[in-house]
């Protein structure tokens, strides 16, 4: 490296530049935070039920088999758009009954097929979960996923 770039210059560029990028990033984060609350997830209220559903989702670590908006594990189907795939996005009752039917028929026990464990959930929990999934599905995700297969 040329002599113009001395060690102390390199160090100063590192510190100065990093501070600059941190500041820009924080600014964009603040803007994005507002955008999420006011625009991209504003289509449906973040109700008590949805919040509870998120906790049920976390308590059972669904994310370590499934993906949600494309993040998580790759062992089981994408769930960010599952209510669309099931055609129940606009109907809380249908979403609840579909999900209840699904959860209560697990594990399938089919030989050679990936198994989803059986979770003993109350109707209230299932209802919360289906609302959480409907809520996730209404998020404006810039058109992702490309199709209903997820």
């Amino acid at each position: 490296m040329a002599e113009i770039l001395t060690k102390s210059r390199a160090r100063n560029i590192f510190y100065g530049g990093s501070i600059f990028f941190v500041v820009v990033f924080v600014g964009m984060t603040v803007h994005s935070h507002r955008y999420v609350v006011q625009t991209s997830t504003a289509g449906m209220p973040l109700s008590e039920e949805v919040r509870h559903g998120k906790h049920v989702w976390e308590e059972h670590s669904c994310i370590n088999c499934h993906s949600l908006h494309g993040e998580g594990a790759y062992f089981a189907p994408e769930l960010g758009n599952v209510t669309t795939r099931w055609g129940v996005q606009d109907s809380p009752d249908d979403a609840f009954w579909m999900l209840k039917g699904w959860i209560e028929s697990q594990p399938s026990g089919l030989e050679g097929r990936r198994q989803m464990p059986r979770y003993e959930l109350t109707d209230e929990d299932i209802r919360a979960l289906s609302e959480f999934l409907r809520w996730a599905d209404q998020t404006d995700t810039q058109g992702w996923p490309p199709n209903d297969a997820g």
């Binding site: 490296m1 770039l5 060690k7 390199a10 160090r11 560029i13 590192f14 530049g17 990093s18 990028f21 941190v22 820009v24 990033f25 964009m28 803007h31 994005s32 955008y35 999420v36 991209s40 997830t41 908006h69 494309g70 993040e71 998020t139 404006d140 995700t141 810039q142 992702w144 996923p145």
Partner: peptide, 25 residues
Amino acid sequence: YVIVATALFSGILGTGHHFYWIGLP
């Protein structure tokens, strides 16, 4: 110093590659 400078200059805003489809602008 050159290596870590390029790491932070790219990596901080590079976080954006995870922000495409999760509801962010």
